[in-house]
Amino acid sequence: MSTRQDTTPRTDCAIDPDGRITFRLPALPAAPRPRLLLRLRPGKGAPEQTQHHVDLEPGAADGRPHAVLEPHPALEEGRWDLYLLPEPDAARQRLRPGLRDLRALVDGHLRDRTSPVAVRVPYVTKDGFLALRTWLRTAHAEVRALDLADRAITVAARLHGAGLHNTATVRLRLRGTGTVHEVRPRIDGDGRGFSFTVGAADLAGTAPPTGRFWDVFVRPAADAPPVRIGRLLDDVADRKHVHVFPALGAGDFVLRPYYTVDNDLAIEETPAHSPT
């Protein structure tokens, strides 16, 4: 049995309500210019292109160096892996997570956001390293509640980075096609909150045996671009397998709302009785 110990540095992090993140590393050997490297994870087969560097400042009483990632400039949307650069020409070292203080994110949906809506959530990767999940959108509609009852799905949400006009519509777009179904939302008095209901009759059609998927947007006004509806404004980096909803039987079809890998809202539609 191997007794080799993991010497990868463990990094504590804490985020404040403005999105400022402070990273604290263990004491390091003296180096001329240690830095924290954030690398935007490239798509499969794509080259690495985007990096962001933050200087590490020496610790005061405890001797632990720290780096502060300011809210601006906003980071590009995606997943950022974190590394230590002990000195300019040294090999980068991947970082393990220490303590993560994400309390400021838990009630993040309660604060109104201006455009662009920038979100950052530190998280632990499947292989146990520290990373950062980011979203950057002109506007965003945050799900506040989702209810399945009376053979229908009712969603309450709040728009951030824009306001709702009385011509606003909710758009369900059939993935991979140009088919769109529109629903008129109920708009709150402040012009930001809204709700809508979707039933099986709204999505009636001939679903293939494997089903089909509807992505959900709100169009704030008749001439405005659609805005994705989802849940981004809290401490959950990957929601798809955390918030799982039951299927809703509705006539010849079964509807099931779910969150995509990007934490956006979608609806899966499958036949109630698959052909044998």
Rank of each mutant, 00 (worst) to 15 (best):
residue 1 M to L: 15
residue 1 M to K: 06
residue 3 T to R: 13
residue 4 R to S: 09
residue 4 R to Q: 13
residue 5 Q to F: 15
residue 7 T to W: 15
residue 9 P to I: 07
residue 11 T to F: 06
residue 11 T to L: 08
residue 12 D to E: 09
residue 12 D to H: 10
residue 18 D to V: 04
residue 19 G to A: 08
residue 21 I to S: 01
residue 25 L to S: 00
residue 26 P to K: 03
residue 28 L to Y: 08
residue 33 R to E: 15
residue 36 L to R: 01
residue 38 L to Q: 02
residue 43 G to R: 14
residue 46 A to N: 08
residue 49 Q to D: 13
residue 50 T to N: 05
residue 53 H to G: 04
residue 57 E to P: 00
residue 62 D to L: 08
residue 64 R to N: 07
residue 65 P to S: 08
residue 66 H to A: 13
residue 68 V to H: 05
residue 72 H to N: 10
residue 72 H to L: 09
residue 75 L to I: 06
residue 76 E to M: 06
residue 77 E to Q: 13
residue 82 L to I: 03
residue 83 Y to P: 00
residue 84 L to S: 03
residue 84 L to E: 02
residue 94 R to G: 04
residue 97 P to K: 07
residue 98 G to A: 08
residue 99 L to Y: 15
residue 100 R to P: 00
residue 101 D to F: 12
residue 104 A to H: 05
residue 105 L to N: 01
residue 107 D to W: 10
residue 108 G to E: 06
residue 110 L to R: 13
residue 114 T to M: 07
residue 115 S to F: 11
residue 120 R to F: 05
residue 122 P to C: 06
residue 123 Y to C: 09
residue 124 V to G: 02
residue 128 G to N: 09
residue 131 A to V: 03
residue 133 R to M: 02
residue 137 R to G: 10
residue 139 A to P: 00
residue 141 A to S: 11
residue 143 V to L: 06
residue 146 L to C: 04
residue 146 L to I: 04
residue 154 T to I: 03
residue 154 T to K: 09
residue 159 L to W: 06
residue 159 L to R: 08
residue 164 L to P: 00
residue 164 L to A: 02
residue 165 H to V: 05
residue 166 N to M: 10
residue 166 N to Y: 12
residue 174 L to N: 05
residue 176 G to C: 11
residue 178 G to T: 11
residue 179 T to F: 09
residue 183 V to S: 02
residue 184 R to I: 14
residue 185 P to Q: 07
residue 187 I to Y: 12
residue 211 G to S: 03
residue 215 D to A: 04
residue 217 F to M: 03
residue 217 F to K: 00
residue 222 A to S: 15
residue 222 A to Q: 14
residue 226 P to W: 03
residue 227 V to Q: 04
residue 229 I to E: 00
residue 231 R to H: 10
residue 232 L to E: 08
residue 232 L to H: 07
residue 232 L to K: 00
residue 244 V to P: 04
residue 244 V to T: 10
residue 245 F to W: 11
residue 247 A to G: 14
residue 248 L to I: 12
residue 249 G to Q: 14
residue 254 V to M: 04
residue 254 V to W: 02
residue 255 L to G: 01
residue 256 R to V: 01
residue 257 P to N: 06
residue 260 T to G: 07
residue 260 T to A: 11
residue 261 V to L: 14
residue 265 L to C: 05
residue 266 A to I: 02
residue 271 P to W: 12
residue 271 P to I: 13
residue 274 S to V: 15
residue 275 P to N: 08
